[in-house]
Design a protein around this nucleic acid. Structure first.
Lengths: 235, 235
DNA sequence: ACTCTGGATGGAACGTTGTTCCAGGCGCGG
DNA sequence: CCGCGCCTGGAACAACGTTCCATCCAGAGT
């Protein structure tokens, strides 16, 4: 009947002034760390409380003492990864360049951990998203975007990044097994080339450009496009 | 051992030149239609094969004869909704305006059917996304965007829309019960206002603007921002 | 030194889900 | 009228997230 977790601060404070109960003590940090490990090495679908419990050599019930549910676990894991990326931006760089750098950081993080992409577009105002929003917003202020426009500009940038994040993660989910990326692109191109020319002329034209296409470059092109639009607000 | 479904064309062709076996015959169309009904009235989590079977007065096995799995069902449902929206754009309108209209159509569709937002960011190159991409791409050609830039521009617009779609759908999922939108905004604003001022100055500033904030307007502002960026490519 | 206590543990059990399997039913071609 | 094959409906399966509870154990109180 008691309410576990959600009072992590108290638990932690007590733990600090107490010798660890055991050397292999469970903790929220260790759980999240292990969860990230599983997500990275075996994919999103492999993260189950059973698998997590097995790797931590405990039972699923014990995990629930530290973590409210799977949603919280995933949100915390994503927040961890994003935090590392967003705080990485070196100070002193020009704002426009800093935004590019933040966006690329997030992109690369999602590329390395596709499950982050899924998570970012699963819960609306989770911590990880707030972090990105804050980082981007700060640079927009520095860039001289007038205050009323700042929210809209940040929203545009962040939503673009999140859209690509979800898309990327979904693609990675399909790719997961052995196939390599160029083969995947070729398959997509072939499928698009077979679309009805009357109904899908644009997709067919794009299909031709698909081999030799660089996702990362396209991502950055999109950021630059939005930055160009924002530039008009500054001038 | 036989392979059901995936040959819908053949099945349908036969059915046309044959009197319906029953008046209440099952069909992929009727299944999708019913699925959309459930999704709209009871939310994403209510769509289970059991609930679907119950409403169709049949068993779950029968549904699997017409539909490969839940992913296909959701993709087909989303494609249905999006198709209605994207083909709605009146011909003859100016390209920039047409793109705005397409985007707003998708936005409104997601607002009315939040589950579509979830679905769009779940599978990478599903039909619904292709439809949007094609519609946007066509207008970009008409706008005079040089061919090499068309793919990037379309990608930016579509990813922005999808990002917002996922975000919106996730928010709707939380909102689902009885709470109204203004109360939800107030809650978010209050939460953001409590963030560490040193670490989250921007979020706190934005929190102040959050009451009296219009999602739809912000969405359109984002589209205009990207269009402004694209405008520089045309000039 | 001994008990007491409540935070922490681990594994069994529950309810629900997507999916598979299979024993039939039904209408059309022979 | 029969039998073949498309189609049906519901039972059964495996896996999941979550709950429950008997048990453990380090430190506070005596």
């Amino acid at each position: 009947m008691f309410q576990p977790c959600q009072n992590g601060a108290v638990t932690k404070a007590k733990r600090v002034q107490r010798t660890q109960r055991r050397t292999d003590a469970l903790s929220k940090e260790r759980i999240i760390e292990t969860a990230i490990e599983i997500l990275d090495t075996e994919g999103e679908s492999a993260l189950t409380f059973r698998a997590l419990a097995a790797r931590l050599a405990t039972g699923s019930g014990a995990i629930y003492w530290h973590v409210a549910n799977k949603d919280e676990l995933l949100a915390a894991a994503a927040s961890d990864v994003i935090a590392r990326v967003v705080t990485d931006v070196a100070g002193g760089t020009e704002s426009r360049e800093a935004i590019r750098s933040i966006a690329l950081g997030v992109y690369d993080a999602i590329d390395a951990h596709p499950w982050v992409g899924t998570q970012l577009s699963r819960e609306p105002w989770q911590f990880a998203v707030l972090r990105i929003f804050e980082a981007v917003g700060g640079q927009l202020q520095a860039l001289g975007v007038p205050e009323p426009a700042q929210f809209n500009c940040a929203s545009a940038l962040v939503n673009y990044v999140l859209g690509l994040a979800g898309h990327h993660a979904a693609a990675a989910r399909l790719l997961a097994p052995g196939t390599d990326r160029t083969a995947f692109l070729a398959t997509a191109a072939a499928r698009w080339a077979q679309l009805d020319p009357a109904q899908y002329p644009f997709m067919r034209q794009v299909a031709a450009q698909l081999p030799g296409h660089d996702d990362r470059e396209q991502f950055l092109a999109g950021i630059d496009l939005i930055l160009a639009g924002i530039g008009e607000k500054v001038r």
